[in-house]
Design a protein around this nucleic acid. Structure first.
Lengths: 213, 213
DNA sequence: GGGGGCAATGTGAATAATCGCGCCTCCGAA
DNA sequence: TTCGGAGGCGCGATTATTCACATTGCCCCC
């Protein structure tokens, strides 16, 4: 969909087909458990032929990451391009959710990296998460600043990241439990409704009410 | 803590030490990427010695899962032992969160299984999640039944599961971003506060207000 | 009490499969 | 004719697993 080779030719280049196959398999098995033989099999070539297009396994992994990061960091720079209002946060979150539904591979790769490490993990953290954890001076809205002062803000950032990412990485299990495709259109709408409702609760946060337990 | 060998002797048996080491490494790398040599190294023995205690790699994995499932399914059967009131859901969720903080390995193993599969994955789903997705006749509270009728209930179940599990599985990345231990006592309290606030929002749900986007 | 068996538990060596990766050949299109 | 790219071959490392063997502690019987 954002593959430049598709724009110029009907058939993607071998390098792009390798990238597509590698992205899927890296996302499923993680870096170390992915074998280049599996990647080559899916492309339809032999594994030594991969070395005509990528220096080695790590370079292939790096190329996969780079292509994903290009796509997924776009909404964040868009959000940073103006004042952080409630409404713009709503739209940003919805964009993120739709993006992860369209391509679950980044979340899966990220989850593998968080669990097992692997090359370029620190770069992943910096480019995807670091901006969200730095205190942003352009945040507006009284409720939001109140929330910020409670010290709960980073935990809210983590919470919504968890909501989005874990839905994707746990999707294979949820498929069995729901009895329907977790990436279908109706599933996406349901998840969006629930996330928006929870986000409203954060925006409407007025401090700590009486404990329930 | 629930190790029977500790009750009778000060030093755990070799089988238990193997289980402990295997649990950590399986949780970090997943089933297929875990090498028995690594497990043996951590125990301080050679890998063929593992076969004196477990039939093969899969049996060791199964034993690790079984021990974890014993611990983690306890709160769920406790919740099922009576009417599902708001307050009892609060307490159950808090217990679950504290349990995952005390031992993050189940969440990590589960995440690996969801991403990459592995032996006994279906059994994991059945024993940990299936009960939460079946409509429960003992649910009480008007808000809750209203919520149930919207069809959003399974999505709420998934959402809170995502909140708890992803916090644990993403913890290595959050450690860098927070600048503090995600499993410290204060971190636990912060996460609990935020989850309780979101759970209150679900309980207070009165239907769909005007869209924000 | 002493010794003979025996089960439990460790080890090194060996095996077959798989892995990443480099070398070299060959083919087909420009 | 040239050259990018695919494949065949194979090296060295790692994997799970098996096997023969050494050692230890314990029980039982003489």
């Amino acid at each position: 969909m954002d593959n430049p080779a598709i724009l110029t030719a009907e058939v993607p280049s071998t390098a792009d087909r390798i990238l597509n196959a590698a992205e899927d398999i890296f996302a499923e098995k993680g870096y170390s458990a992915t074998s280049l033989g599996d990647v080559a099999d899916r492309v339809g070539i032999r594994s030594p032929s991969l070395y005509n297009h990528f220096k080695n396994k790590e370079a292939l992994y790096e190329a996969v990451l780079e292509r994903l990061l290009q796509d997924f960091s776009a909404p964040l720079v868009e959000l940073d391009s103006g004042p952080v209002t409630n409404e713009r946060v709503f739209r940003w979150l919805e964009t993120i959710v739709r993006q992860h539904h369209a391509n679950p591979n980044l979340a899966r790769l990220l989850q593998h990296a968080a669990l097992s490490g692997g090359p370029h993990t620190n770069e992943l953290i910096d480019r995807l998460f670091r901006p969200m954890f730095q205190p942003d001076a352009r945040i507006e809205g009284e409720n939001f600043t109140l929330f910020q002062n409670t010290g709960l803000q980073p935990w809210a950032v983590m919470a919504f990241n968890n909501l989005v990412m874990s839905y994707v990485t746990m999707a294979p299990m949820y498929r069995d439990l729901l009895g329907q495709d977790p990436f279908s259109e109706v599933a996406l709408e349901n998840q969006l409704n629930l996330i928006k409702m929870l986000l409203r609760a954060v925006f409407d946060y007025k401090g700590e009410p009486a404990q329930a337990s």
